[in-house]
Computed example of a mutant assay.
Amino acid sequence: MSISVLERQSDESIQSQLRRSIIAAIHAGQMTPGQKLLPSRRLAEQLGIARNTVTAVYEELVARGYLDALPRQGYFVGRGLPADAGQIRKEAQAPLRGGAIDWQGRPKQAPSTLRHIVKPSNWQDFDYPFIYGQVDPNLFPINTWRTCSRDALGRAAIDWWTADRAVEDDPLLIEQIRTQILPQRGIFVREDQILVTLGTQQGIYLLARLLARHGTRVGIEVPGYPDGRNIFAAEQAEIVDLPVDAEGADLSAAGPLDLAVLTPAHQCPTMVSMSERRRDRVYATARAHGTILIEDDFEGE
């Protein structure tokens, strides 16, 4: 059994390194189907790590089909896996029945060619990381969050949040949003006017699916949120650049728009707050053209 040397100073956890090393050895043919792995205690002693770490890796690889666990016998390399990496590559490259699929021509959009948010994986090592959308551990209420998480994993709570509520959100969360958060922004709504999404991307995606189609003119801030632009572009909307100056997004040269996605509180990445004069002008333009304004209040919380 060949296991690569584990790097204790690496940012990758020991458990992740061990898991990756075993999978690599299986794919490389260094471990063959049916071969017995070292007992967790012995492997842990050889590597100088905790036995629980080895056991956790073995159990995960059993769940993923790489290993088989036999009672009172130990762990074995799964017999349903290809014997070597060469066989894996051949199967992956083999043409499908009926001919190969033209994957370049089938999708209506090539996501790999779009502009996305790019940031270094070690951004936390920088004294001044110029990124956004990440949690600051010095400001985030970690202890309170940990307590809430523990309560949410209690037996009674699990029965609540695992129920199938396909058409409704958590009523307690909705009530807090309706009575505590939205009124601070001058927004007063009914419960059925609130929809909780998994995040900004899903919210914009749902709006794009509902409101955008081929030829829909959508104003997007430049510079701005690239994923918002990509989502509306996927619906074949016509993207209209909205330049950002010292007063915020400028719609004056955009012409009639069907939709406009704006960040008036703090524009990202310039952090400009839209002036009251510019807001009045945007409202007037939207009323005149029937433009639906979508506010991305990403710092609202």
Rank of each mutant, 00 (worst) to 15 (best):
E7C: 00
Q9F: 12
D11Q: 09
S13Y: 01
Q15S: 15
S16Y: 03
Q17Y: 03
S21M: 05
I22F: 03
A25V: 07
M31W: 06
Q35L: 09
A50V: 05
N52P: 00
R64N: 12
L70P: 01
L70Y: 08
P71G: 05
R72T: 05
Q73F: 08
G78N: 14
I88D: 00
E91Y: 00
R97W: 06
W103E: 06
Q104K: 14
R106Y: 05
K108I: 06
Q109P: 00
P111R: 04
H116C: 00
H116K: 04
I117W: 08
V118C: 02
K119G: 05
K119F: 15
P120E: 03
P120C: 04
W123D: 03
F126Q: 15
Y132V: 10
G133M: 05
Q134V: 15
N138I: 00
N138A: 14
N138E: 13
L139I: 06
I142D: 10
N143V: 10
N143K: 14
T144F: 12
T144P: 00
R146C: 05
T147D: 13
C148W: 12
S149M: 14
G154C: 06
A156P: 00
A157V: 05
D159A: 13
T162P: 00
D164I: 04
E168I: 10
L172R: 12
L173I: 07
I174C: 11
E175H: 12
E175I: 01
Q176G: 09
Q176P: 01
Q180I: 11
P183T: 05
Q184R: 15
R185K: 09
R185N: 07
R185V: 02
F188E: 09
V189I: 13
R190Q: 14
E191W: 01
D192R: 13
I194D: 04
T200K: 10
Y205T: 13
Y205I: 01
L207G: 02
H214G: 12
V218S: 03
Y225F: 15
G228S: 15
G228F: 02
G228K: 03
R229H: 10
N230M: 00
F232N: 01
A233E: 12
D241Y: 01
V244M: 08
V244W: 07
V244F: 11
E247S: 14
G248W: 04
A249M: 10
L251S: 04
L251F: 11
S252F: 04
G255I: 05
P256D: 08
D258F: 01
P264G: 09
A265C: 10
H266Y: 15
Q267W: 08
C268G: 14
M274Q: 13
M274N: 04
S275C: 13
V282F: 09
Y283S: 14
R287S: 09
I292Y: 00
I294F: 06
E295V: 15
